[in-house]
Simulated assay, not measured.
Amino acid sequence: MNLTKTTIGAFALTTTLLLGACGNDDMKKDENMDTKSEMKDKDMSKDNMKDKDMMMSGMFKSMNDEMVEGKATIKDNKLMLTDFKSSKAPDLHVYLTKDGNVDKGMEIDKVDYNKMEQTFDLKDMDTSKYNEVTIYCKKAHVVFGSAKLK
């Protein structure tokens, strides 16, 4: 009788330990899966945040005997012109360009030559292809100035 109780007890203990170990492995797998998906989510959010949080800015330099002053900043999918001044022009526009090439650049909007603070929405625009903000008079076909972005 003692042998039967001992055998049953040993069997129950062994079974409990084995089932407990299986449960821990499952939990570890679930934890690993959660951790992997959390890491994936973090990586994806880093990629999304990279564009959103990326900040580039530069100071304007005048060109072609025209005057442009101030700072251009790209942050949070917005282009901000601060302390901005420009020569007077009837048809002044702001572009994102690669090395100042307006023909291959992206026109953002009309710019007010005497408004010091201006903000333009860049949502859904790929700004990574451009390294300058260029002020261009469409009517005269003249670049007034540009700011190299860093």
Rank of each mutant, 00 (worst) to 15 (best):
T15M: 04
T16D: 03
A21M: 09
C22A: 15
N24L: 15
N24S: 12
K28P: 00
K28Q: 12
K29E: 07
K29Y: 01
N32G: 10
M33G: 03
M33Y: 10
M33R: 11
D34C: 09
T35P: 00
T35E: 08
K36C: 05
K36A: 15
K36N: 14
S37P: 00
E38Q: 11
E38H: 09
D41P: 00
K42A: 13
M44H: 07
K46I: 13
K46C: 05
D47T: 12
D47E: 14
M49H: 14
M49E: 14
M49I: 09
M49Q: 14
K50Y: 12
K52Q: 09
K52R: 11
D53I: 06
D53N: 15
M54E: 12
M54T: 14
M55L: 12
M56Q: 11
S57W: 11
G58A: 05
M59Y: 11
K61N: 11
K61W: 00
S62Y: 03
S62C: 06
S62V: 05
M63P: 00
E66Q: 15
M67P: 00
M67C: 01
M67W: 00
V68S: 04
E69R: 11
E69C: 05
G70D: 05
G70Y: 02
K71R: 14
K71D: 15
A72K: 04
A72W: 02
K75A: 14
L79Y: 03
T82F: 00
D83Q: 12
F84R: 06
K85V: 07
S86E: 04
S87H: 02
S87F: 01
S87K: 02
K88R: 07
P90T: 12
D91G: 06
V94G: 01
V94M: 02
Y95V: 05
Y95I: 04
Y95R: 04
T97G: 10
K98R: 10
D99F: 06
G100A: 08
N101Q: 11
K104N: 13
K104E: 13
G105P: 02
